[in-house]
Design a protein around this nucleic acid. Structure first.
Lengths: 190, 190
DNA sequence: CCCTAAAGTTACATAAGTGTAACTTTGGCA
DNA sequence: TGCCAAAGTTACACTTATGTAACTTTAGGG
């Protein structure tokens, strides 16, 4: 090593995540990130040619992290076990959806590396989706799911639960249990 | 009238809506809007002192429009009638949540008018919430809602349905019916 | 018919983000 | 111990958004 870096890749990604969530794609720029990392803006250009390259690299990193954990879902054998695991995972990665959505804001005609990252990201997305399809398939096989609901609606409901603002006075476990009950049996009194 | 305006307020709000949705708060600027309206950027400064003033005025307009229609919910007497109406309304105003969220991106120390608009917007929000609470209250009175689910969770589930991507091959009515069934009775096969 | 006020434009000063090139600093290693 | 490559900084040119002031255009009323 010629000289010690003032920040780690992990720090860089953590600050990037925070800035993307709070400032969005357009509000994110090298000046801001450099300030948070305690270096000058120019230092970042040694690592990434522009912000799109940094952002897509970061999204790949996030996606791979999420995917690695999602694949652990197969360790649970029953649909209900997998549902519990998935809900927990979705709450752990509650901001990943918002982050991945910024992909649509990246202008198309940038450097090659950016396009390549976007392509890889699409592959990872398909990979993710196939695992979720298998989860739904298990639920159908166990006859735990109403057959007339399409896969996309079921997954949509499950994933949107993370956007429902949690009551501060309830514990996370209690909240998660209630969400699960809502998903499974709805809100109607019987 | 001294001279005919090149655009109507309605056109201005429509373009503003579109730009806010597709470019976000940071990506929205007078140059872009002026171009869409076929005037120069400077012309817009005759109407609004800066983009924050325009955006908050627009949000007020949207909120009032939504609120006016939401209040019509009282014309339906049963909880189920009101639920149908609400779901329809939420789909009609599917982007309003995203638009109102941009309020959190507006820097605090701008002109007075902006702060005033934000305050009025908060009042309208409370007004909106009280109507939604009444809707939930009716459902509880009719014993149509499980008592242990908090109001916020029920409203959260209802409002998040708009973010579930609709299957293109299904009609809007069919989709809405299925969402309603999911909300009321869940996804679990019984 | 021409005056006026609102609508719009042009032109300018300012501010902030982008990207690059030339430079300095640091720390391991021959 | 001094080379050298990676890390970082400084300085500059470029681009784009912001806000304002002075100007021109337009259409109705006296």
């Amino acid at each position: 090593m010629a000289r010690e870096s003032k920040f780690t890749i992990d720090e860089l990604y953590t600050k990037t995540r925070s800035l993307l969530i709070h400032h969005g794609y357009d509000g994110f720029h090298f000046g801001l990130l450099a300030e948070r990392l305690g270096v000058t803006r120019s230092a970042l250009y040694k690592y990434y040619r522009n912000k799109d390259e940094l952002i897509t690299e970061f999204m790949l990193y996030e996606m791979e992290r999420f995917l690695r954990e999602l694949k652990q879902i197969d360790q649970y054998e029953t649909f209900e076990g997998q549902l519990d695991y998935l809900l927990e995972l979705i709450f752990k990665y509650s901001k990943i959806h918002q982050i991945l959505l910024t992909i649509f804001r990246i202008p198309p005609s940038t450097h090659e590396k950016v396009q390549e990252n976007i392509n890889i990201l699409e592959e990872k997305h398909l990979d993710m989706y196939s695992h979720l399809k298998r989860f739904i398939h298990l639920g159908r096989k166990e006859k735990k799911l109403k057959p007339h609901f399409p896969d996309e609606m079921i997954l949509g409901f499950i994933f949107q639960t993370v956007n429902i603002p949690k009551q501060p006075d309830l514990s996370s476990e209690k909240w998660c249990d209630m969400l699960k009950e809502f998903l499974l049996r709805g809100m109607e009194e019987t």
